[in-house]
Simulated scan of single mutants.
Amino acid sequence: MKIKASLRKEIGTKSSRRLRNINNVPGVIYGENILVKNIFINHNFLYLLIQKKYFYSKIYKLEISNNIENVLLRDYQLHAYKKKILHVDFQRVNFKKKIFIKIPLYFLNYEISPAKKISSGIINYFIDNVLITCFPKYLPKFINVDLSKIKINQSIYLSDLILPKGVKLFFKKNSIVVNVHPLKNKQE
């Protein structure tokens, strides 16, 4: 997917405010020991993209003056109370180097699990995204967590996740991703 951007000729607070007033978002592209590029992107287009969960784990082709750069979204700033993006940061991607990125988890099949069907268990979600490392060609949009076999008083840990080819978790401890507890009796 392509994102069209334009180079900013001016930088600074006043220039950024002017861009926002005409429905644009100021931003930067950095990385790969290349000079930082100051850019701007149409606000409405960018706002629609950030609503999609996979937006954070996808490599985009950023088109600037007929030049294409492969980038990842690294950060953005939102207005405190308006639905408005104030600034966006992209990082260049080198397909020959591994990247570190947070990937969302998608929880599947709880409705058919023994914990739900037999016991009406209550599920607790502790982690909804994980930090991974991989080469860009192996970058998944998300990682599925299959809950179809989970039972009451069971947990799924980071080490239990089934990872796509070429993807490794980057974590220090084996944390609980999700667990299920029995529904407490209201008369107790």
Rank of each mutant, 00 (worst) to 15 (best):
Leu78Glu: 09
Lys102Gly: 03
Leu73Ser: 07
Leu108Tyr: 06
Phe126Asn: 14
Ser120Lys: 12
Leu73Gly: 04
Leu163Arg: 00
Ile101Ala: 04
Phe170Glu: 15
Ser159Ala: 15
Tyr76His: 02
Asn109Tyr: 01
Asn144Ser: 14
Pro136Cys: 11
Lys84Pro: 07
Ile150Leu: 12
Ser119Asn: 15
Asp89Phe: 06
Glu111Ile: 02
Tyr81Met: 12
Tyr106Ser: 00
Tyr125Lys: 14
Tyr125Cys: 14
Leu78Cys: 09
Lys96Asp: 06
Leu169Ala: 07
Asn109Asp: 09
Gly166Met: 07
Pro136Thr: 04
Thr133Arg: 08
Lys137Val: 14
Lys97Ala: 05
Ser148Cys: 03
Ser119Gln: 13
Leu108Pro: 08
Ile162Gly: 15
Pro114Lys: 10
Ile123Asp: 03
Lys172Phe: 00
Phe107Trp: 11
Asn94Lys: 00
Lys96His: 11
Leu105Asn: 00
Ile123Trp: 12
Lys97Asp: 07
Ile101Val: 12
His87Trp: 01
Ala115Asp: 10
Lys165Leu: 07
Lys82Ile: 12
Ile85Trp: 08
Leu86Val: 05
His79Gln: 09
Leu147Lys: 03
Ile127Trp: 06
Pro104Cys: 01
Lys149Pro: 02
Pro104Lys: 01
Tyr81Glu: 06
Ile85Met: 01
Leu147Phe: 03
Ser159Trp: 08
Leu169Cys: 09
Ile152Tyr: 05
Leu161Asp: 03
Asp160Glu: 11
Gly166Cys: 01
Val71Leu: 00
Ser155Val: 14
Ile85Ser: 02
Leu105Thr: 10
Val93Leu: 10
Val145Ile: 07
Asn129Thr: 13
Phe170Asp: 13
Lys102Leu: 13
Leu158Tyr: 07
Pro140Ala: 08
Asp146Arg: 04
Leu78Lys: 05
Tyr138Asp: 03
Ser148Met: 01
Val167His: 02
Lys151Ile: 13
Phe100Asn: 08
Asp89Asn: 09
Tyr110Met: 11
Ile150Ala: 08
Ile152Gln: 04
Ile132Tyr: 11
Arg74Glu: 13
Val130Cys: 06
Gly121Cys: 02
Ile103His: 05
Phe100Pro: 01
Asn153Tyr: 15
Lys97Cys: 05
Lys141Leu: 14
Leu131Tyr: 15
